[in-house]
Amino acid sequence: MSQSWRNDSLFRDGSLNRGRLVLYAILIFVAIVWGAPFIWMFVTSIKPDTEVFRYPPTWWPEQPTLEFYTRLFDSFPMLAWFRNSLIVAVITTTLTLVTNVLAGYPLARMRFRGRRIVLLIILSTFLLPGEILLVPLFLGMVNFKLANTYFSIAVPPAANAFGVFLMTQFFLTIPVELEEAGRLDGCSRLGLLWRIFIPLSGPAIATVAIFTFVRSWNDFFWPLVISNTDATRTVPVGLAIFVGRGLSMRFGVIMASAAAATIPAVIFFLMLQRYFVRGISTTGLRG
C-alpha cells in the first residue's frame, strides 16, 4: 500500500511535509509507549534503595548498582525456576514438533476417510476456551499421581492444534512434482516426509518450534494449577506467587527478577523476530 500513498499529497516520499511529520511523531510516540516500560524496569532494577522512590522519576540512577541481581538468587530459587521452565519448554516443543509434522503430512497430502471431519474437530478447538479443560486435566493428573511432574506441566499443552494447522498449510504449498519423483524412486510415505517435505519445511518447522517454545515458556494458568513445589515450578508461576504478590518494599530485587525473566526472552525474540511474525500472521494465535 505504501506505494499508493506515495503520490498522495499527504504522504509524498522524499519531502518531509506535514502529513509525514505527523506520522513520524506518532511513530516515535508509539515506540516510547511500548519501549519505556522495559527501560523503566531495567533502570529500577539497578537503582539503590534510596533512589527507587525518588519523585519526579529519574531515568538513570546516580549510583547504579548490580547488587539486586546478585541478591536475586539468594532471595528466590530463580535458578530452579529457570531450569524447570527450560525442561518444560524443551519437552513441549519436541513433542509438538514431532507429532505435528507427522500429522500435517497426511492432512495435506493424502486422501483418506474422515479427513474433513478430523480437520474440522482439530480446528474447532481454536475456539474452545481452555478453562473448561483445567478441572478434568487437574483431576486426571492427581488421580494418576502425576501432579508436580514435568510430564503434567509439559505434555498437555502439546495437544494444541496451532502447529498441526501451520504444518498442514505449509505442506500444501510443496510442489507435487517433487513428491511424484520421490515415489517413482520407490520412497515410502515416511521416506517422502523425511527426505522431501522436512528439508523443504525449515521455515515452517522453525516457526512452530519457536512459537511453541515461547508459549510454553510463558504459560501461566496450567503450570500454576498443576505445580506447587519449587522442584517443578516455572519462572512465571514463581514470579507471580512469590515476587509479584502485592509489591513489597524490596523493589530492586523484584524488578531485577522481572528483568532476569524478561531479558533472555527479549534477546531470543530479537534474534528470531521473523519467525514470530510468520507464526502470528498465519494463525492469529498468541501464547
Binding site: 524496569m41 510463558n218 512465571p236 501464547g287
Partner: peptide, 13 residues
C-alpha cells in the same frame, strides 16, 4: 517485544 514477556513480568512492571 511484550509478546515474549510472561504475564508475571508484565504484571510486576
Amino acid at each position: 517485544l511484550p509478546h515474549v514477556v510472561s504475564v508475571a513480568a508484565v504484571g510486576i512492571i
